[in-house]
């Protein structure tokens, strides 16, 4: 039985059909990579899977049971990292993560999350003084604040240097090895060899 599956997904944006008839089935530990040109609906699909957008058609399953992305049970099992970093420039890096940890209802794992992306030395620094790549790393460090089986990442590697890209790949690998699934939109080389590739806008 697949852990996370979808069938016949269709989404309407501004009266236009972005995609229709999309489907996939992910077993535990599998990575789905979304590919396609700009505007092909990669972000839209991720937002739909996160429950931020309503879908026009289609069904979703989690562990074989139908699931509604808008319901609280679904929200509690996913991590979403979109284009926006969702960090406050007037707070320090550690304060930003502590806020998100409380929002996730997770424990105090801020130090570990900072360390995973080599941000330990910058914990007390206001985000205002961080570079774009460092802010992206801070946004990705959220993934470590609470264990969630479903990761939805929208071009996570944008602005990352080579070591951080490696750190992200390692994190993703551990997540998948632990039985989680991930849906990642990307333009470049995938971080890891994906189990499944969905070409959008083709």
């Amino acid at each position: 039985m697949p852990l996370f599956a979808a069938e016949d997904l269709a989404c309407l944006r501004g009266g236009q059909l972005v995609f229709a008839g999309l489907g996939f089935a992910l077993e535990e530990g599998e990575l789905l990579v979304l590919r396609g040109p700009n505007g092909s609906g990669k972000s839209t699909l991720l937002r739909l899977l996160a429950g931020l957008l309503p879908r026009r058609e289609g069904r979703l399953w989690w562990r074989g049971r139908t699931c509604e992305p808008q319901e609280a049970a679904h929200r509690a099992r996913l991590h979403y990292v979109g284009h926006h970093n969702a960090v406050k420039s007037d707070l320090t890096a550690a304060e930003n993560l502590a806020f998100h940890a409380a929002l996730y209802g997770g424990g105090e794992r801020v130090d570990r999350a900072l360390a995973a992306f080599g941000l330990s030395a910058l914990g007390e620094m206001r985000v205002r003084y961080l570079s774009a790549g460092q802010r992206r790393r801070l946004a990705l460090a959220r993934l470590l604040l609470a264990p969630r089986p479903l990761w939805l990442l929208d071009e996570p590697e944008v602005g990352l240097d080579r070591p951080s890209r490696k750190a992200l790949a390692k994190l993703l690998e551990d997540h998948l090895a632990g039985g989680g699934v991930a849906v990642v939109a990307t333009h470049g080389d995938p971080l890891l060899p994906p189990a499944l590739v969905l070409e959008l806008g083709a």
């Binding site: 996160a50 979403y80 979109g82 926006h84 998100h100 209802g105």
Partner: peptide, 18 residues
């Protein structure tokens, strides 16, 4: 407005808390 622009609002929408 600020939470909307920097993406924090999305995460508040996705938070398990009501």
């Amino acid at each position: 407005q600020a939470d909307f622009e920097d993406g924090t609002l999305e995460l508040m929408l996705l938070a398990p808390a009501p």
